[in-house]
Design a protein around this nucleic acid. Structure first.
Lengths: 217, 217, 217, 217
DNA sequence: GATGAATGAGGTTTCATTCAT
DNA sequence: CATGAATGAAACCTCATTCAT
């Protein structure tokens, strides 16, 4: 391998090390207690090195957030590709992979830490808006396709919002309190909601049914 | 008594001023850029005064979070009391008041900022767990009561989780992107979900219906 | 004295302390080795205090330079006032006071240190230009007045430049090498030059005279 | 021999490159903002290379100063040689070449930057003292010779000091403010002073003359 | 009680130097 | 020999806290 190529590889690798270090440091100590020192410690590098690979701490933080976000995006895309073309299957797969991510509790926590700061960080906000817009568009599209296949009429905007915010709401709850419910439970509920939406649920999870033997006799 | 009362009141008032200042400062500058100076500026007090009313900045932050949390709690209780004893009406009122809170965008943002740090702050975490546990218990109880009234059988744990996380998910979405949907929309969706759960919804909002003229005729 | 006035006085005093500390630190260690720490040490204050009184180190350095420059200006004005209205006497007094300043070797050295950086510091440059322009104008005016009194015709621009640069040249020489000549010598030479210019010198210092007994007899 | 010679030459050439880079970097950014990086950039070399050719940054700075100083010395010697043996002609040539150097404004500025630090750098100071002592001795010798040729009696110490400090004073003025006067003007004044000293000036530049029509009638 | 001056710890960043490739 | 990655010291600055007035 050419020297230049090798060097480039090292640069990328070191940047990755620092990004990983950032996420790990935040995971362990929180956002406020993560200093350049703790980040470099986690990355196994010396303090001054950050300047070689990033313009400063702020850029590194942004890149760490970007890394988190794009990793999630890619995970989801991969999971979707694997289940083929059926829109409902794709939505179910996206749901499952979302909560599989919640099992990596540390990363999720860091995600929330970033979200807590994004409001005052234009770059982060832009990045987040961009990805969420695309995500919601995709969800809405899949819902529309699934409905069309079944000859159903759905308020897809409403359903897409509900879906996306349910996912986030359950993820948020898992971050804030790991003992309130499990990722599996959350996954089941959302998948149940999806199936129910299209009238395909065998067990109508979240829906009420009339108690047997009370009014029916 | 007069003097002592006045002093006591002043102390309480000053503490409130500082708490308000904290929230305002975080709302304007973010968590990371809120210093004792900016907080005292917002509160209209001098820098050194913080030591008279709180043990330190950390305690003040915790109290500010507590204030946010208990204010929300009290708002909700008041709203519930106002609609009387009907469990479904209470849940609907709680929903409405939740999203009315989202309209105060600044406070919500601060809330998220606190959540982003709560994971590494045992006190905050304890406070949050306590309130959420009570909240979910209450939701579950109301759902159970509403179901019982109607002779319906519901998985109340599942429904309570869904309800609580939907609320949070929609609130989170409003904080992260004020243009994706309105609080009103979110409120409608969740209220619709509640009504649908009990089979009372006239317009079946998020639910699919079979398209007219396709299978029918 | 009112509290506010007292405080203002303290502020001014502390700023002066820091300015003095800056000059002293540069005098002892040079420009490059003067840090905020050494400056505050010389001023007898703690490191962080600089932020209370100046926007940063750069501002403090500029103010120290300004202090040096205006002090020199005021010294000269005072000396001039004391000798009355005669233009030649004023120029002689200005000369004497200039070299009296050179006796404070430390300050002069610091002056040169600042000059060595002024080229890349727009503020310092502006300040310096302003004062020098005024200074040269004043010299030229006094020379013109002295010439007019005596009915002499002088190229005042040329004479003013010569005077001003001689002063600076001798001052510079004293800074660079304290053993080459004394301030007194320099003072005598420049005063001699002035007197000679107006034909008033009893002993014609720097001027050649024909050796006795060579051409005369 | 070929290889060794080539290497030696390369080393010398590289050292020269670095010295030139140092002067250029200081000229562009000032002393305080010249780092090993900026110097090597200007020299077209990589950062780490400095250690191969100099013991460290300090040595390089010293060598750059030495280069400036010896270059000036050699320029002057060459100019003197070219005008032959007449002492006054030599002094005039030295004067002219001094102000020709002032036309290279960047180098002069760097010179002053070094002077601003020399006080705290024993090596620089020694170097400077040595050269100035020799320079003043030479000036004094030429003045004495010129006076002897003409049968004039001169205080040569005084005249040599005046000459040397006038040169420096005018050079300093040109560095500090390029618009106050031109190198040509300065050169004329000093040459005029020299000629006048030996009673050879056709136009008695800086000297006063009695106005016509006042005492003459 | 109220103020803001004072302190000094600790954060980010820059930089001269070393060293493996 | 040349490169630039790596190191860690040290600089500047910010900030929570203390304390004299």
């Amino acid at each position: 391998m050419a020297v230049a190529a090798k060097r480039t590889k090292t640069i990328i690798a070191r940047r990755q090390d620092l990004i990983r270090g950032t996420i790990q440091s935040i995971a362990r100590r929180g956002f406020a207690n993560s200093t350049v020192q703790t980040i470099c410690d986690e990355a196994g590098l010396s303090r001054g090195l950050i300047g070689h690979y990033f313009k400063g701490k702020d850029e590194l933080l942004l890149e760490a957030f970007r890394s988190l976000v794009t990793e999630a995006d890619e995970d989801t895309r991969r999971a979707i590709r694997e289940v083929g073309e059926d829109p409902l299957q794709q939505l179910l797969a996206a749901t499952v992979v979302s909560f599989r991510r919640s099992e990596q509790r540390e990363k999720s926590t860091v995600w929330l830490a970033f979200w807590g700061t994004a409001r005052w960080n234009p770059e982060m906000q832009r990045l987040n808006h961009h990805l969420y817009a695309r995500y919601r568009r995709w969800v809405q599209g899949r819902l529309a396709a699934a409905a069309a296949e079944r000859g159903l009429e759905i308020d897809t905007r409403r359903a897409a919002l509900t879906y996306a915010q349910m996912i986030d709401g359950f993820a948020l709850g898992l971050i804030m309190d790991k003992d309130a419910y499990t990722p599996q439970e959350a996954s089941d509920i959302v998948c149940g909601w999806l199936l129910d939406l299209f009238g395909e649920s065998p067990k109508r999870g979240g829906k009420a049914r009339v108690k047997r033997g009370k009014d029916d006799d």
